[in-house]
Design a binder for these strands. Structure first.
Lengths: 242, 242
DNA sequence: TCAAAAGTGTTTGAATTACACCCATGA
DNA sequence: TCATGGGTGTAATTCAAACACTTTTGA
């Protein structure tokens, strides 16, 4: 047993974590988690959370990439995500001044931002930024290539939300249709017709009614996403769409 | 200037290269390029082409990931691709018996398979396999996780071909509509209505007529894909769709 | 009884599908 | 003149978009 004899790059995982901020007026906003870097490079600047993957050539060979991303999120910002998927890998030479670093980037959705934003390990702070402001901030300081990464993640999220039911990773387990619609509108950055939205969602038969909830006016019915049923329908060739 | 002090994985790039085989009867078939490995692990078995990325912590830090993938294809199989895009990164522990190896996988399309399949460097042979047979072969021998990779690439190609004009990376620069349709049918594995297909493609106004060609019957008009016009239309919010 | 948000149906136009016939060409 | 593949048009249906009123509830 021997390992390959080639120069090796450093390997990191970074995460673009999306959350929803529900304003007191009920208007939702798409947000992104940034951490303030404790160390160089880019010390003191805001960046995407991430860190090194624990690897080895012996024994169990270290941790899985996705586990590494989750671990870093927990360490740096104290959060647990509800949806997690690989975005892409960024490895352009010179993206890190100190050596060749290749970063595998994940994007993640969190339902509740309750216990989030306690800083830890490499971060002196962790906080939520409105998506567009985060993008501006990363561009302003040219923090690695994190601006490009965030731009790609936003594009992917907006595309994906329309043909896969990942939106449910951004709302509480129980939600009303209006709430769900607000989240869609925050992600897509455009208004949706309430009646058509309702018709569409209910017609797909993926929502299970679970109760009702007080609102400013009439009580709203609440639902959960019925993943069992979704998986079954997908098996029959069903395709989710907005 | 110093580099990060963490254990590092080996880094490879692999490629899933798709091509079209036009049978003498005009029926097209989707194919995948496999190489026969010269060395362990999996010596003598068919696998996806790929190899190590040249990296360094000093100077220019080595080659870009995409360039590495292209270089390996040229070295191992003597081919130049017409479309190249990142698929995903595979880095599960134990996927390579000799140490932690993380592989960034690209998928590529070639228009013409003319000068392809001369073997080189790590490959004792390089040849084209019908997509489904290639998948079976990779599954049979459990060659790394290449079966999973190919399955993902196939899924991605089939999805992508419907909403981005990448199909033109699989046909000659000049093609007839029937030819284009045959390629779509090979990729999607289902028949398309000839009249609706024609209407749809011509209506998008992306094909530039360039001449005509002899066939078994009446002459067929030939076209090229007008990328200039496509880019312009995309700028105006146009969305390609099958 | 008023404001605020939930809930419901219908009409219209656009897009997609299904489908059948004529045309040019070379053998 | 026949077989082969290229080329075109239309009707039927389905899907998406636009749109307005009624209901419940708490203040």
């Amino acid at each position: 047993m021997f390992s390959y004899r080639y120069p090796r790059p450093s390997l990191t995982v970074d995460s673009v974590v999306f959350g929803i901020d529900e304003g007191s007026d009920g208007v939702c906003q798409l947000q992104v988690l940034l951490i303030k870097r404790k160390d160089d490079p880019h010390k003191g600047h805001w960046a995407l959370p991430g860190g090194f993957v624990q690897v080895s050539d012996d024994g169990d060979q270290g941790e899985d990439l996705e586990d590494a991303a989750k671990r870093e999120l927990l360490e740096e910002a104290g959060i647990k995500v509800d949806y997690h998927e690989q975005l892409a890998t960024f490895g352009r030479p010179k993206r890190d001044p100190r050596g060749r670093v290749v970063s595998i980037v994940y994007y993640a959705l969190v339902r509740s931002k309750q216990h989030v934003a306690k800083a830890g390990s490499d971060a002196s702070r962790a906080s939520w930024w409105p998506a567009s402001e985060a993008l501006r901030e990363l561009r302003r300081h040219k923090t690695f290539d994190h601006d490009e990464i965030l731009a790609m993640a936003l594009k992917r999220l907006r595309a994906k939300v329309r043909y896969e039911p990942i939106i449910f990773g951004l709302v509480p387990r129980e939600f009303s249709l209006s709430e769900l619609q607000s989240v869609y509108e925050a992600v897509l950055e455009r208004p949706l017709d309430r009646r058509n939205f309702r018709k569409r969602l209910l017609a797909m038969d993926l929502l299970e009614p679970v109760g009702e909830r007080e609102t400013g006016g009439r009580k709203a019915a609440t639902y959960t996403f019925d993943r069992k049923n979704y998986d079954m329908q997908v098996g029959r060739g069903f395709q989710f769409a907005l």
